[in-house]
Simulated assay, not measured.
Amino acid sequence: MTLTRRSFIAATSAATGLIATPAILRAQGKLALRMGHPHPESDSWQDVALWMNETLNEQSNGEITLQVFPNGLLGNDPTMINSVRAGSLDIALTGNPFFTSLAPELNVLDLPFLFRDRDHVARVLDGEIGDRLRRNFDGTGLHALAVWETGWRHVTNSRRPVVEPADIKGLKIRTTPNPAHIEAFRLLGAVPTPMAFTELFTALEMGAVDGQENPTTLILNSRFYEAQKYLSLTQHAFTASPLVTNADKLAAMGEDQRNLLIATAQEGAKRQRAMNAEREQSSLEALKAEGMEAVEAPDREAFRAIVAGPVQATFAAEFGSDLIDQINAA
């Protein structure tokens, strides 16, 4: 039995009994933390979260443990965020789009065709711009320990290949609740349908939506190929993923515990991003082996021409253009 499997069994059996208990347990100086996320066990989020547990346990001489609940075991994306804000869950990890209702300026990270490449993403997330954006969590009850990633988003559907924008017209596409994602697909003539990630597979399987947009790694790990025939590498947006904790509980920790938790989360971000990047090509090949038809070179410039300018203009009308300008110049 692998470590991942053991952790999953332990998490599943313990979930019901632990939800109602205090999230941070202190006994003889020990700190027991719980973390939830919506992705499958096979995803890099789970792999690195388990690494965090091992590292925290080792570096603290057993004083800190991190119990990880994947697959939305502790609720969907908004539920876990609200649980952390309320103090009933210690740590949650999910995509940036689910935080923008609390901190609207974060919506800038989800603007279509904003990022040029992964180096550009890193310069933004790990520099002064990222520091500014993380300050948006002030006053929400949340503190961003680090920023992991979901990755480059691509379109899948069950009806037809998507080569150019006209191919998306009329398709009912699941999106995140992020305004930038919704507006972009409306501009393309699709029917954007926001829903939590934990509800997506069933919606695809039942035909409630025609398609969705996520990275190849997540499409593979979530087995979306079982309900989707066509994959188009549109790379229309990049999704960052804040790893958040309850701000008051972080402040109440001992200084050594707090510093170790933050340092481990930030090292975890580097590991998870690198792991995701390495798995992108192999996951694409695996999806093709599962029978998906992949359009590897869609007309991205045609997509960009329709959505990038108008969606950025909508953001700038509310927040100004300086943040977009800073990101473009990074």
Results as ranks from 00 to 15, higher is better:
Asn82Tyr: 12
Thr140Ile: 08
His143Gln: 05
Ser13Leu: 15
Asn76Pro: 07
Gly29His: 09
Asn136Ala: 14
Ser44Leu: 09
Pro97Met: 14
Thr79Trp: 01
Leu106Lys: 01
Leu50Met: 10
Ser13Phe: 10
Arg134Gly: 00
Asn76Trp: 05
Arg26Ala: 15
Asp47Glu: 15
Thr55Asp: 08
Glu41Cys: 07
Ile19Gln: 13
Ala92Leu: 04
Leu56His: 06
Gly87His: 07
Gln46Gly: 00
Leu56Gly: 02
Leu74Asn: 06
Thr65Ala: 13
Arg116Ser: 14
Arg134Phe: 05
Ser42Ala: 15
Gly139Leu: 01
Phe113Asn: 08
Glu41Ile: 12
Thr140Leu: 09
Asp126Gln: 14
Ile91Ser: 00
Leu18Trp: 05
Pro112Asp: 10
Phe99His: 15
Ile64Asp: 12
Ile81Arg: 12
Leu142Gly: 05
Ala27Lys: 14
Phe137Asp: 05
Gly87Gln: 09
Leu111Asn: 09
Phe113Tyr: 15
Gly62Arg: 05
Val124Lys: 01
Leu73Thr: 11
His39Glu: 06
Leu114Asn: 10
Ala20Leu: 09
Gly17Asn: 08
Thr94Leu: 00
Gly95Trp: 10
Ile129Trp: 13
Ala86Leu: 11
Asp90Leu: 02
Phe69Arg: 02
Ile24Asn: 10
Glu128Gly: 07
Ala32Asn: 13
Leu33Pro: 04
Gly127Ile: 10
Ala86Glu: 15
Asp119Lys: 13
Gly72Asn: 12
Met52Tyr: 02
Gly139His: 12
Pro104Cys: 00
Asp90Glu: 10
Ala23His: 00
